[in-house]
């Protein structure tokens, strides 16, 4: 037997936290048992047989001939070819009611779904269901632009029909909106409830800062108060919702986190979590000791919130753009694979015809799908591979010889021990939230 290659160890007081990235599980070990696990494994079996058995059971200890890397390769291959799920992103509009200074999208004023593009999307989805009997889940994500500009009159009827079509076939469709929340009004809440909608809502920090970034262009009226009220309204009125609050931070916003937490102090922690994302244009010098960020994460957790930071949660591929069953449809019938670039002809990779057939640019698609994102010298030996799977296929298409620039470890603003301690605390909070009270 041997210790798993994917064990990471962090000292904590007189103990060690061990995190196995392949199986996404933590354990707390005494200093002595940590030493035996790392250096004298047979002695651990004698000195603490029950501990040894449990470590084997949870795969912190594996057979000598275990091929953990090979298992991960197979997992990736299975995931990107998974016939049970389809990831569909819709761009109902590339217009927006705000003008955040850091947004990379090219706005198309007045753009919106047409009756023809709506019917094309419905025809495509029906064909998916009927030609792929293994397909069980359709994950529909609304992006843009601001996807809710024409929600009641255009988007909701389309999504309600997708939901009905799925249910008639005993399949599942789920709906997720990436939105600034300005268009979520009391009269739309029952519609979102019928869709079992979940959301990502972006925040730019405390009220003054948020209102300097997210304001109505004509009146310069800030949107912070309305956004906070909407978060409460959604959690109180939607039975099954979940809201990922994407907190765009920079060095100025981090010290003011308590103000934002105070404004969300009564929100249902089961329905709201926080994701911290640096505004990339404010690029930190990537020193791995940002104490203000560490304090901000700790403060959210101290107040009972789930917190995510970095894109290192356990999954089976780097980005869904690598999945075979994935497409992005814009309001005008153009099709894309990557949602992290602007939706311009340069990045267009296909077309959805009026009768619902998707025609990819075969050359572009082949180049993208041939990329195995972790299969490079940088990632193959990385113990974080099960959490990361390497730079996304878009970055590798654009910069195939400079992958190190995109390594998440390089951009992490916490030390690895601090990051693992944060993840350990976060896992404890999640466990507590999952436990029925």
């Amino acid at each position: 037997m041997k210790a798993s290659y994917y064990n990471l160890y962090v000292p904590h007081k007189e103990h060690f936290i061990c995190y196995n990235t392949k199986n996404d599980i933590f354990c707390l070990l005494t200093d002595r048992n940590h030493d035996l696990l790392c250096n004298h494994l047979p002695q651990l079996a004698q000195a603490a047989p029950r501990v040894y058995e449990q470590l084997v059971e949870q795969r912190f200890i594996v057979d000598d001939d275990a091929d953990e890397y090979g298992e991960l390769c197979a997992e990736y291959d299975t995931a990107i070819h998974n016939p049970n799920v389809y990831y569909l992103t819709l761009l109902p509009s590339l217009d927006c009611n705000l003008r955040c200074w850091y947004c990379f999208e090219k706005h198309v004023k007045g753009s919106h779904l047409t009756p023809e593009s709506t019917q094309a999307i419905l025809a495509y989805v029906r064909r998916l269901w009927d030609e792929h009997p293994q397909l069980a889940h359709l994950n529909v994500e609304m992006f843009g632009g601001e996807p809710l500009l024409y929600f009641r009159e255009e988007l909701y009827p389309l999504l309600a029909q997708i939901k009905q079509d799925a249910e008639e076939r005993q399949r599942k469709a789920s709906f997720f909106f990436v939105t600034n929340a300005v268009c979520i009004t009391p009269d739309t809440l029952p519609l979102f409830d019928r869709l079992n909608a979940s959301f990502q809502i972006s925040i730019d920090g405390y009220k003054d800062r948020h209102d300097r970034v997210k304001f109505i262009p004509g009146t310069r009226e800030g949107t912070y108060d309305r956004m906070i009220e909407t978060v409460y309204s959604l959690t109180r009125n939607l039975k099954n919702t979940y809201i990922n609050l994407r907190l765009n931070y920079d060095d100025e916003t981090l010290p003011h986190m308590a103000d934002l937490i105070q404004d969300l102090i009564d929100v249902d922690r089961h329905k709201v979590g926080v994701h911290l994302e640096r505004v990339w244009q404010t690029g930190h010098s990537a020193k791995h000791d940002n104490q203000a960020l560490k304090a901000a994460i700790d403060l959210w957790m101290l107040n009972g919130f789930k917190v995510s930071y970095m894109n290192l949660g356990r999954r089976s591929f780097s980005c869904k753009a690598s999945a075979v069953n994935q497409a992005i449809f814009s309001y005008d019938g153009t099709a894309y694979k990557c949602s992290g670039r602007d939706f311009t002809p340069q990045h267009c990779e296909g077309t959805l015809t009026a009768d619902g057939f998707l025609h990819w640019d075969a050359g572009k698609l082949e180049r993208r799908m041939n990329i195995v994102t972790y299969d490079n010298d940088l990632c193959r030996s990385c113990k974080l591979m099960p959490l990361c799977w390497g730079p996304c296929c878009q970055k590798q298409l654009e910069s195939p010889s400079d992958l190190e620039r995109f390594c998440q470890k390089r951009h992490m603003e916490l030390s690895m021990p601090d990051y693992i301690c944060y993840q350990f605390n976060e896992a404890c909070i999640e466990t507590e939230l999952r436990t029925p009270s």
Binding site: I17, Q54, Q262, L302, C428, I429
Partner: peptide, 23 residues
């Protein structure tokens, strides 16, 4: 209205095999 907690223990502060599963 509740107030923001600014002091206190995070889960690991008061902790020995103990397992915690990730998400």
């Amino acid at each position: 209205m509740k107030q923001v907690k600014t002091t206190g223990n995070l889960p690991m502060d008061g902790m020995i095999l103990m397992f915690v599963t990730g998400g």
